[in-house]
């Protein structure tokens, strides 16, 4: 075995031991389902900001976004403002009202706001299905990175990643995951910071790199995409992030509404740092290797061939962190949807806290293992799966969450119609007119959300209003007694 391999194994082993230790620590502080799903509502703004950023930053950022900058240059960076418009919408319209409500899951919100068990069940089922698809993409990315860098079979990387992530998640739930997310955010930034000077030094600085890239193609350093294309893609990202269940669940775990606001700001600052580092690395790799066969290989080649063994190993651990931090958030949201919203409501309403904790933990394992099979079938490329599933989630959740929290008159029939209709419209557009996006510039997510909004308003107007008692916690500034933070540390 070469010394480079030993360095990598040592770095990965130290990382896995640390996250497992945090998992065990979380296990010792987890005695109820509330501990497991919302960490006793104890998370502060710094850890919370890292949680929100780490959940959003995934394999898509390290592989897909870096590859996009490699191929098209600078202008893709402006897409981040679309994501931040989504976060701003969440901070203004979603987070305060959602956090005041002392729930455990996003389906809890749907059930309470619309006074409907059917809407709650539909929301939980949609969360489980769509996030299982999302997990497939994350596992596939881990397999592809491992086979590109080390030539090992993808299944080995997937098993290592899911075993480690499922272990710390099932042991300590949100409490462990939050502190692991904090560590993972630091590792992502460290990996990127180690890479940036290496590529810049090769060119003698930023300006010579820019001049070289401009000589390859002036669009790389200026505008590859038109403003219309940037706005259309930004809108899709914004709609997705304004009401993403795996992010909203984490609001419940923070101390209070103001903590959530600060955490969103810290998360945006972290995203700006990570996004601009990924851009510089993508540009640098284009300068170093102008004709790679696939843009998605840029990040793996950077770690394996450009950086020193130790720095390359830390960069790869940063990539693993990006994947694992997204996977743990998904496992928590899908396990919670199964255990809290389906099992405890439909199968065993008298379940004890110990039983619910056990079902949550078993669900983490089962819902983590199922996507491995899908990942091995390779139904599509990673970035495409990530983008498509997020469009579907926005198409059924944006309206019931963002408009549902702003408009009292929305009803349960309106919510069910909005979720089902938004999903169907997004699906129909994806398989028909999406192909001619270049001519009309209208994305499937915009069609899905527009249809969802139309159905929500029309059907709600035609059906009886939601009982005032259900709405008080969202619209009358009444805090739910369950929403308070219970210190345990």
């Amino acid at each position: 075995m070469s010394s480079d391999s030993l360095v990598f194994i040592a770095v990965v082993a130290a990382y896995l031991v640390t996250v497992t230790a945090i998992g065990i620590w979380g296990y010792l502080h987890t005695t109820t389902e509330e501990d497991f799903l919302v960490a006793g509502r104890s998370i502060g703004p710094w850890v919370g900001g890292c949680v929100l950023a780490a959940t959003q930053i995934s394999a898509g950022t390290f592989v897909g976004t870096l590859g996009r900058h490699y191929f098209t240059g600078v202008s893709w960076i402006w897409i981040w403002f679309g994501a931040w418009a989504g976060w701003l919408t969440s901070a203004l319209l979603v987070a305060p009202r959602l956090r005041r409500f002392g729930a455990l899951t996003v389906a809890d919100y749907i059930g309470q706001r619309f006074a409907s068990e059917r809407a709650r069940t539909l929301a939980a089922a949609l969360i489980i299905v769509s996030y299982t698809i999302y997990l497939t993409a994350q596992f596939q990315a881990s397999g592809e990175i491992a086979s590109a860098v080390f030539g090992v079979r993808p299944i080995y990387a997937m098993v290592l990643l899911i075993a480690s992530t499922a272990l710390y998640t099932l042991l300590g739930g949100v409490r462990s995951s939050s502190y692991v997310d904090f560590l993972q955010t630091m590792l992502m930034m460290l990996g990127l910071f180690l890479g940036v000077p290496v590529v810049l030094q090769t060119f003698g600085g930023l300006q010579p790199l820019g001049q070289y890239l401009e000589s390859l193609d002036p669009r790389i350093t200026a505008w590859w995409f038109s403003w219309r294309e940037i706005l259309a893609t930004s809108l899709a990202f914004g709609l997705t992030l304004a009401a993403a269940p795996y992010e909203m669940t984490r609001y419940y775990s923070m101390r209070d509404v103001q903590t959530v606001r600060y955490a969103i700001g810290i998360s945006m600052a972290i995203q700006a740092i990570i996004g601009s580092s990924v851009m510089i690395l993508g540009l640098g790799m284009r300068g170093l290797f102008p004709v790679l066969p696939s843009a998605d290989q840029a990040s793996s080649i950077l770690a394996a061939s450009v950086m020193s063994p130790l720095a390359g190993a830390l960069f790869l651990v940063g990539m693993m962190s990006a994947i694992m931090s997204t996977v743990n958030s998904i496992l928590i949201v899908t396990a919670g949807a199964f255990a809290h919203d389906l099992y405890a409501r439909l199968i065993n309403p008298r379940a004890s806290q110990q039983r619910l904790l056990l079902v949550n933990r078993v669900a983490v394992v089962v819902l983590g293992v199922v996507p491995v099979w899908f990942a091995l079938q390779r139904f599509g490329d990673v970035q495409a799966i990530v983008v498509e599933q997020s469009k579907f989630i926005a198409s059924f959740f944006f309206v019931p969450v963002v408009i549902g929290l702003s408009w009292r008159r929305g009803t349960k029939e309106g919510a069910v119609a909005a979720m089902a209709g938004g999903f169907a419209a997004c699906l129909a557009w994806t398989f028909t007119l999406q192909r001619s996006f270049a001519t009309h510039g209208i994305d499937a997510v915009e069609v899905g959300v527009a249809m969802s909004a139309l159905l929500f308003v029309v059907v709600s107007r035609l059906t009886p209003p939601t009982p005032a008692a259900n709405l008080a916690v969202f619209f009358d500034g009444v805090s739910d007694a369950r929403s308070h933070h219970t210190p345990v540390l």
């Binding site: 600078v74 202008s75 960076i77 402006w78 981040w80 403002f81 931040w84 701003l88 901070a91 930023l206 300006q207 010579p208 790199l209 820019g210 001049q211 890239l213 401009e214 000589s215 350093t221 200026a222 505008w223 509404v257 103001q258 606001r261 600060y262 969103i264 700001g265 945006m268 600052a269 700006a272 601009s276």
Partner: peptide, 30 residues
């Protein structure tokens, strides 16, 4: 040959302004 232009540098200025404005707003909330 000028290298990077305002599509590059403009992002850093705009992002810093956006985040600073966000924190000013957040601090003024209850």
């Amino acid at each position: 040959m000028n290298g990077f232009g305002w599509s590059f540098y403009g992002f850093f200025i705009a992002a810093a302004a956006w985040i600073a404005a966000y924190f000013v707003w957040a601090a003024r909330q209850r």
